[in-house]
Amino acid sequence: MSLDVLKQLAEQFGRALLRTHSERGDDTAVIEAAAIRAVCLWLRDTPELAFDMLTDLTAVDYLEQGRRPRFEVVYHLYSLPRRHRVRLKVGVDDPAAEVDTVSDLWRNGNWLEREVWDLYGIKFRNHPDMRRILLYEAFEGHPLRKDYVKDRRQPLVRRPAGEIAAALGQRPAARRSLI
Protein backbone atom coordinates (compact mmCIF):
# COMPACT_ATOMS: atom_id res chain seq x y z
CA MET A 1 0.00 0.00 0.00
CA SER A 2 2.81 2.31 0.68
CA LEU A 3 4.34 2.32 -2.80
CA ASP A 4 1.16 4.13 -3.58
CA VAL A 5 2.49 7.29 -2.01
CA LEU A 6 5.50 7.36 -4.26
CA LYS A 7 3.37 6.64 -7.32
CA GLN A 8 0.99 9.41 -6.48
CA LEU A 9 3.86 11.77 -5.81
CA ALA A 10 5.29 10.94 -9.21
CA GLU A 11 1.97 11.64 -10.87
CA GLN A 12 1.54 14.92 -9.11
CA PHE A 13 5.08 16.28 -9.19
CA GLY A 14 6.66 14.59 -12.21
CA ARG A 15 9.69 16.75 -12.73
CA ALA A 16 10.27 17.93 -9.20
CA LEU A 17 10.64 14.32 -8.08
CA LEU A 18 14.27 13.43 -8.71
CA ARG A 19 14.54 9.86 -7.41
CA THR A 20 12.56 7.41 -5.37
CA HIS A 21 13.42 4.19 -3.63
CA SER A 22 11.91 1.83 -1.09
CA GLU A 23 15.01 0.23 0.36
CA ARG A 24 14.39 -1.75 3.57
CA GLY A 25 10.72 -0.86 3.43
CA ASP A 26 11.15 2.89 3.82
CA ASP A 27 9.57 4.85 1.01
CA THR A 28 11.87 7.65 0.04
CA ALA A 29 11.49 10.48 -2.41
CA VAL A 30 14.25 12.91 -3.33
CA ILE A 31 12.72 16.20 -4.28
CA GLU A 32 13.95 19.40 -5.81
CA ALA A 33 14.58 21.98 -3.12
CA ALA A 34 12.24 24.51 -4.64
CA ALA A 35 9.30 22.12 -4.52
CA ILE A 36 9.50 20.94 -0.90
CA ARG A 37 6.83 23.25 0.43
CA ALA A 38 4.39 22.42 -2.31
CA VAL A 39 5.01 18.70 -1.84
CA CYS A 40 4.57 18.88 1.92
CA LEU A 41 1.42 20.92 1.63
CA TRP A 42 -0.01 18.50 -0.90
CA LEU A 43 0.91 15.45 1.18
CA ARG A 44 -0.68 16.96 4.23
CA ASP A 45 -3.87 18.16 2.62
CA THR A 46 -4.71 15.36 0.22
CA PRO A 47 -7.33 13.33 2.08
CA GLU A 48 -6.17 9.94 0.72
CA LEU A 49 -2.65 10.58 2.02
CA ALA A 50 -3.29 12.77 5.08
CA PHE A 51 0.25 13.10 6.36
CA ASP A 52 -0.75 14.96 9.46
CA MET A 53 2.41 14.45 11.49
CA LEU A 54 5.92 15.65 10.87
CA THR A 55 7.67 12.84 12.66
CA ASP A 56 11.17 14.09 12.22
CA LEU A 57 13.20 16.65 10.39
CA THR A 58 16.96 16.47 10.25
CA ALA A 59 19.90 16.86 7.92
CA VAL A 60 22.89 14.78 6.83
CA ASP A 61 26.30 16.05 5.84
CA TYR A 62 27.86 14.02 3.01
CA LEU A 63 31.17 15.89 2.97
CA GLU A 64 33.25 12.75 3.45
CA GLN A 65 31.38 10.92 0.71
CA GLY A 66 32.18 13.83 -1.63
CA ARG A 67 28.61 14.08 -2.71
CA ARG A 68 27.09 17.13 -4.33
CA PRO A 69 25.00 18.72 -3.07
CA ARG A 70 26.70 18.39 0.24
CA PHE A 71 23.70 18.39 2.60
CA GLU A 72 20.45 16.56 2.56
CA VAL A 73 17.51 17.77 4.61
CA VAL A 74 15.43 14.76 5.56
CA TYR A 75 11.74 14.87 6.43
CA HIS A 76 9.87 11.93 7.89
CA LEU A 77 6.13 12.18 7.59
CA TYR A 78 3.51 9.97 9.15
CA SER A 79 -0.19 9.70 8.62
CA LEU A 80 -2.17 8.77 11.71
CA PRO A 81 -5.43 7.98 9.87
CA ARG A 82 -3.74 5.99 7.10
CA ARG A 83 -0.86 4.57 9.15
CA HIS A 84 1.74 5.10 6.45
CA ARG A 85 5.04 6.88 6.28
CA VAL A 86 7.19 8.59 3.73
CA ARG A 87 10.64 10.10 3.77
CA LEU A 88 11.36 13.19 1.73
CA LYS A 89 14.88 14.35 0.99
CA VAL A 90 16.08 17.64 -0.35
CA GLY A 91 19.64 18.38 -1.41
CA VAL A 92 21.15 21.72 -0.48
CA ASP A 93 24.66 22.94 -1.00
CA ASP A 94 27.03 25.08 0.94
CA PRO A 95 27.43 28.38 0.94
CA ALA A 96 24.06 29.85 1.65
CA ALA A 97 22.33 26.55 2.17
CA GLU A 98 18.64 27.38 2.34
CA VAL A 99 15.35 25.55 2.15
CA ASP A 100 11.79 26.74 2.44
CA THR A 101 10.33 26.40 5.90
CA VAL A 102 7.55 23.97 6.75
CA SER A 103 7.09 25.40 10.23
CA ASP A 104 3.70 26.80 9.27
CA LEU A 105 2.48 23.41 8.07
CA TRP A 106 3.41 21.47 11.19
CA ARG A 107 4.02 23.27 14.42
CA ASN A 108 6.96 21.21 15.58
CA GLY A 109 8.67 22.22 12.35
CA ASN A 110 9.61 25.42 14.08
CA TRP A 111 11.93 23.86 16.62
CA LEU A 112 13.15 21.09 14.37
CA GLU A 113 14.25 23.61 11.77
CA ARG A 114 15.96 25.66 14.42
CA GLU A 115 17.83 22.56 15.45
CA VAL A 116 18.98 21.90 11.89
CA TRP A 117 20.12 25.50 11.62
CA ASP A 118 21.93 25.21 14.93
CA LEU A 119 23.76 21.98 14.21
CA TYR A 120 24.19 22.08 10.44
CA GLY A 121 23.91 25.74 9.48
CA ILE A 122 21.13 25.21 6.97
CA LYS A 123 18.76 28.14 6.92
CA PHE A 124 15.04 27.94 6.42
CA ARG A 125 13.46 30.65 4.33
CA ASN A 126 10.53 32.49 5.99
CA HIS A 127 11.10 30.78 9.33
CA PRO A 128 9.67 33.06 12.03
CA ASP A 129 12.46 32.61 14.55
CA MET A 130 15.75 31.40 13.08
CA ARG A 131 17.84 31.21 16.25
CA ARG A 132 20.03 28.55 17.77
CA ILE A 133 18.13 26.15 20.00
CA LEU A 134 20.51 23.64 21.58
CA LEU A 135 23.70 25.69 21.65
CA TYR A 136 24.32 29.25 22.76
CA GLU A 137 24.40 32.34 20.61
CA ALA A 138 28.11 32.88 21.17
CA PHE A 139 28.90 29.51 19.59
CA GLU A 140 30.74 29.76 16.28
CA GLY A 141 30.21 27.23 13.56
CA HIS A 142 27.85 24.31 13.31
CA PRO A 143 29.05 21.27 15.20
CA LEU A 144 27.46 18.43 13.25
CA ARG A 145 29.13 19.47 10.03
CA LYS A 146 31.79 16.93 9.31
CA ASP A 147 34.50 19.58 9.17
CA TYR A 148 33.82 20.68 12.74
CA VAL A 149 36.41 18.99 14.96
CA LYS A 150 34.57 16.97 17.57
CA ASP A 151 36.20 18.35 20.70
CA ARG A 152 36.68 21.95 19.68
CA ARG A 153 35.17 23.63 22.71
CA GLN A 154 34.07 27.22 22.95
CA PRO A 155 33.89 27.87 26.68
CA LEU A 156 31.71 30.59 28.08
CA VAL A 157 33.30 30.54 31.50
CA ARG A 158 36.47 29.10 33.03
CA ARG A 159 38.34 29.54 36.29
CA PRO A 160 41.33 31.85 36.07
CA ALA A 161 44.40 29.98 34.92
CA GLY A 162 46.67 28.94 37.75
CA GLU A 163 44.11 29.57 40.45
CA ILE A 164 44.50 26.17 41.98
CA ALA A 165 48.26 26.17 41.95
CA ALA A 166 48.48 29.65 43.41
CA ALA A 167 46.09 28.86 46.20
CA LEU A 168 47.84 25.64 47.11
CA GLY A 169 51.27 27.25 46.92
CA GLN A 170 50.40 30.03 49.33
CA ARG A 171 48.85 27.79 51.89
CA PRO A 172 50.86 27.85 55.10
CA ALA A 173 52.06 24.44 56.09
CA ALA A 174 50.39 23.85 59.44
CA ARG A 175 48.13 26.67 60.27
CA ARG A 176 44.59 26.69 61.38
CA SER A 177 42.24 29.46 62.20
CA LEU A 178 39.42 29.58 64.64
CA ILE A 179 36.75 29.75 62.03
Binding site: L134, K150, D151, R153, Q154, P155, R158, R159, I164
Partner: peptide
Protein backbone atom coordinates in the same frame (compact mmCIF):
# COMPACT_ATOMS: atom_id res chain seq x y z
CA UNK B 1 31.27 12.98 26.40
CA UNK B 2 34.43 14.55 25.07
CA UNK B 3 33.04 16.93 22.55
CA UNK B 4 32.22 20.50 21.66
CA UNK B 5 29.40 20.96 24.14
CA UNK B 6 30.53 19.44 27.41
CA UNK B 7 32.74 20.91 30.11
CA UNK B 8 35.63 18.50 30.72
CA UNK B 9 35.06 18.43 34.46
CA UNK B 10 33.40 21.08 36.56
CA UNK B 11 36.71 21.90 38.24
CA UNK B 12 37.38 23.97 35.15
CA UNK B 13 34.61 26.21 36.37
CA UNK B 14 34.38 25.93 40.16
CA UNK B 15 36.53 24.31 42.86
Amino acid sequence: YQNYSTVPGIDHVIP
